[in-house]
Design a protein around this nucleic acid. Sequence first.
DNA 1: CTCATACATCAACTTATTTTGATTTTATTA
DNA 2: TAATAAAATCAAAATAAGTTGATGTATGAG
Lengths: 114, 114
Amino acid sequence: MIEIPLIDLNKQELFKDYKNKFKALADEKRLEILHLLTTDGESCVCDLQPKIDMTQSKLSYHLKILLDADLITRTTKGTWSYYKIKEETINHILSEELCCIFRPSRKKDSDTCC
Amino acid sequence: MIEIPLIDLNKQELFKDYKNKFKALADEKRLEILHLLTTDGESCVCDLQPKIDMTQSKLSYHLKILLDADLITRTTKGTWSYYKIKEETINHILSEELCCIFRPSRKKDSDTCC
DNA sequence: CTCATACATCAACTTATTTTGATTTTATTA
DNA sequence: TAATAAAATCAAAATAAGTTGATGTATGAG
């Protein structure tokens, strides 16, 4: 006998993906990191560390969560890891009103900005 | 001696508020509830309960979290509690691409919709 | 080759969130 | 008035997430 799901599976998959992204956004420290990456652009861990008050291992932990949620990207050059906002994802999820906080390309110059 | 915060206080306040909203969104069950309220409009707990597979106390718990985050509103009529999407908040936070999932007024009829 | 730096990862621990079942409150109905 | 129904709340248990300090692994500089 076939069970009919209460809600279709594609939506369940979508919800799971959004849940992961919202979970990654659901932390003040991580919002701070995202904001820093938005204003300062691509940065390495050692750049971020003094700007937000956090130990290196904690910072790496939070960056990994943002990375896994596809909200940022990483490129490694030698012993440095450079992190950058993934605008594609951020813009897909967040409203334009949040633009000047987390959307680099919409920073301050648009009328629709806060 | 005055400490200069690494990041200004207004932004900290903003981040705290966003964190709370993202935290409320960071759960599959709650996204399901929001989606149901989006498609079905204002509903009471007893309407929602059979549609999503959840016990009453669990449902009330999750509704309270959405309510506290200002993502939905409640009106009580007699012994019923009716919950409704708070479009103002949803639209302020989420992108238009998420409209047909969580934004009642943008449902399906717009080209920018998914 | 040795040392310092940048970063990731790990395991133990602490804290926060979710689930469960029972209870309470208020309102409606018989 | 007694019985039922809707929904909120509570306390205990179960899960999950975040923090900490230590360790590992490259890489680059001297």
